Computed example of a mutant assay.
Amino acid sequence: MTVVALLSVAPVIEDSMAGEVAKAVDALDEFDVSYETNPMGTIIEAESVGELFAAAQAAHEAVDADRVSTFLKVDDKRTRAFEADEKVAAVADELGREPKRER
């Protein structure tokens, strides 16, 4: 896959956002993308920018709120195919360990 993005979709509400965020994540299943959700957003991988944008738009529209805040950061590496895991592995190689700290 060649396009990786960080997507964060959140309703602007005072109560828990989990239910609405779950709707946004669920909307991604309608697209040919892989994704992994973390506490700050969802990493999405797609074959094309168009597919990525379509999935992000569907996630944004799936949230039912008067106001929705969406952040999309795209890494479109055009020189070769890569996967998000490769980026993490490269940092681990430089560190000489997993880039993770347990509390």
Rank of each mutant, 00 (worst) to 15 (best):
D64T: 11
F53L: 15
L72V: 09
D85C: 08
A55T: 04
L95G: 03
E30H: 05
D93F: 05
A5I: 08
T70K: 02
T2K: 14
M17E: 10
G41N: 06
T42H: 05
R67D: 14
A81H: 15
Y35A: 02
R103T: 08
A54Y: 14
G41Y: 05
G41C: 04
D76G: 12
R80F: 10
R101L: 09
E61C: 06
K77E: 12
R97T: 08
L7E: 11
D75Y: 14
V3M: 10
V33G: 00
T42R: 03
A5Y: 11
P11M: 04
A22Y: 01
D76F: 10
D26K: 07
K73M: 14
A62S: 10
I13Q: 04
A92M: 01
A92Q: 01
A55P: 08
V74Y: 03
S16W: 01
E14G: 14
G41P: 10
V63D: 06
A46Q: 06
L95A: 01
V33T: 00
F82N: 02
A92D: 02
E61K: 13
V63T: 07
P99G: 04
Y35R: 00
L95V: 03
G96H: 02
D32S: 01
I13M: 06
K87E: 02
P99I: 01
V68C: 00
L72I: 01
D93P: 08
K87R: 05
D93L: 06
I13S: 12
H60R: 14
T37Q: 06
K73P: 13
A92T: 00
S8P: 13
A24C: 04
I44R: 01
A84R: 09
I44H: 07
L6W: 14
F82Y: 09
A5K: 05
V9K: 06
V63W: 08
A92V: 01
E83F: 14
G19T: 07
A10E: 15
S34K: 02
A92N: 01
D93S: 08
F31S: 00
T70F: 05
A18H: 08
S8A: 13
N38D: 10
I44M: 05
H60K: 14
T2P: 15
A56P: 08
T42I: 07
H60N: 09
H60W: 12
E61A: 12
Q57G: 09
R97H: 05
A18I: 15
Q57A: 12
T79G: 14
F71R: 10
I43G: 11
A58N: 07
S69D: 15
V88A: 02
D15V: 15
A18K: 09
S48T: 14
F71A: 15
A90I: 02
D64H: 06
D66T: 07
A81E: 15
V4Y: 07
I43E: 10
A46R: 08
K73G: 13
A5G: 09
I13H: 06
A22N: 04
V12N: 13
D26Q: 04
V33Y: 02
F82V: 02
M17Q: 12
V33D: 04
E83R: 12
D75I: 14
A46F: 11
E94P: 05
L7C: 12
L28Y: 02
E83Q: 12
T42A: 04
A46C: 12
V25M: 00
E47H: 12
A92W: 01
S48F: 09
S8Q: 15
S48R: 06
A24K: 03
E36I: 00
I13E: 10
V74C: 03
E98T: 02
D85E: 13
D26M: 05
R101V: 15
E86D: 00
